[in-house]
Nucleic acid binder design. Sequence first.
RNA 1: GGCCCCAUCGUCUAGAGGCCUAGGACAUCGGAUUUUCAGUCCGAGAACUGGGGUUCGAAUCCCCAUGGGGUCACCA
Length: 520
Amino acid sequence: MSTVRTRFAPSPTGYMHIGGMRTALFNWLWARHNGGQFILRIDDTDQERNVAEALEPIFRAFRWLGLDWDEGPDVGGPHGPYYQSQCGDLYQAAIDRLLADGHAYRDFEPPAETQRQREAAEKEKRTYVNSRQSLELSDSQRSDLVAQGTPHVVRLLVPRDRKVAIDDVVRGHVEWDCALMPDPVLCRSNGTFLYNFATVVDDARLQISHVIRAEEHLTNTAVQALLHEALGNPLPVFAHIPFITAPGSTKKLSKRDLQKLRSSPQLKKLFDRADEVFPKLGLGDSTALSPVMVEYYERLGYLPAGVLNALGRLGWSLDDKTEYFSRAELVAGFTLDRIVKKPAGFDADKLASYQAHWMNQLSLEEKLAGCRPFVDAMVEREGWVVPSEETLPKLIAALGDRLKVFSDVLDYPEFFVLDEKLVRDEKAFRQRVIDTPEAKAILSGFVAACPSEESFDVAACEQWLHQFAEAQGLKLGQIVHAIRLSVTGRPAGVGLAETLALLGRERCLTRLNEALGHVA
RNA sequence: GGCCCCAUCGUCUAGAGGCCUAGGACAUCGGAUUUUCAGUCCGAGAACUGGGGUUCGAAUCCCCAUGGGGUCACCA
């Protein structure tokens, strides 16, 4: 069997869509699974924007997830160019050939007339097919019109007397009646080319063996199959994978209706988190980086492994029980025949669970490396105090499973802010300290029992807590809340002994005394 | 509307005629452990869209209906 070559062809949109990333992943996996090649091709036929700039986030997403490409921008390759904007001559040559072979023709019908016919057909509830008036022209009439520079498009001459069919790897046999197909425009009157046509020329030129793409392209495939045939190309294998839907919806996940997505209970958490975290990091808010973009997850400190796992399991499964896949395991297990037909909803909860799983595989050093940039950013932008050498490692160790995503360190400001900047959860502090009659005695007694500076570590703090509770004839559960609220300002967090040790004797005493000032 | 695709727990899925009184995971709800939270352990509830066939036997095959979706550009 010949080499497997797959491709992903993004247009320079300025961001990488999470659904597109899944399509790219499937292409990459299939190529890697077969020891073939994965090609990146840029569909930049509309040259309005700054292509290089709009491409950067896309490359960034690929690199972040560790999806490398064998041919394409940066790496080049023997089948270039890899930018459609540079392929004009190739497309023109293909047009000329089609014209010469009689597979295509010049259509001089004015757009307004085409439009009129289309509307008329619609009104009569008739399937529209174009009139083909220009086919009646004689050769000399035609060359006169061309010589006069009469605007015209080039259309494929669809063989209306038959059907086209493909055997899609995920859909099975699909066929269309050509009699119902208007002749598609290949080349615009301004000389530029259409996507459907350019894609076919490129797929053939790049010797793409498998076209794996979202199912919204299924209808296009009729035209593309016809084009390949007219061009004398071997037909690639098609695999139309289901698209990703918004959670709780059956519609395509799209960046267009961000407002609707925001109201989905599942995604709301993600949007809210973005609004909370991104401004602190100077990255805008959830509009600039929304959960439909790959970069959202990167910037929030998700793991490539978590996102890859989630994406890989969306619309694909290996068997009835395997849930966790590393990149290598995905490569080893991935086959097209196990792709699911039904559109799959993007499941933020499931992503969270994959993420947690892969985070727990990390060493302390790796977690440290992941968290540090977030702390640094807070130091730089939000006035956090530069932590001592051992603070962050100790905190991360104490955090344990609580750390799901690297940016979660941002939830523990109590270890990084000056005592006077400590913000307490008002409601919880009131309940556990101000409105708790015993709080005063507990806090002052606890302060008095504070161990000495020299031995102030987790073990000593553990002892401090236990001995004090015992001396008071209280259970740990009865003293813990007042102390925690006083010292961290929050009702939950890492183990209390760890918290105390992490803060150090001085800060503990300052904060405990400060809290004492709030009780009568 | 035409054409095309799809249809198993709330969600992601297993199931290619008997192994299905339908399995797993996430989520949910109990209970245990714990100093809060997180976690962990144990447990529970939760699905084959409907109707016809075919067959000794259907979640699995066929047909129809219903529902959902995609696409109908001189967009990509």
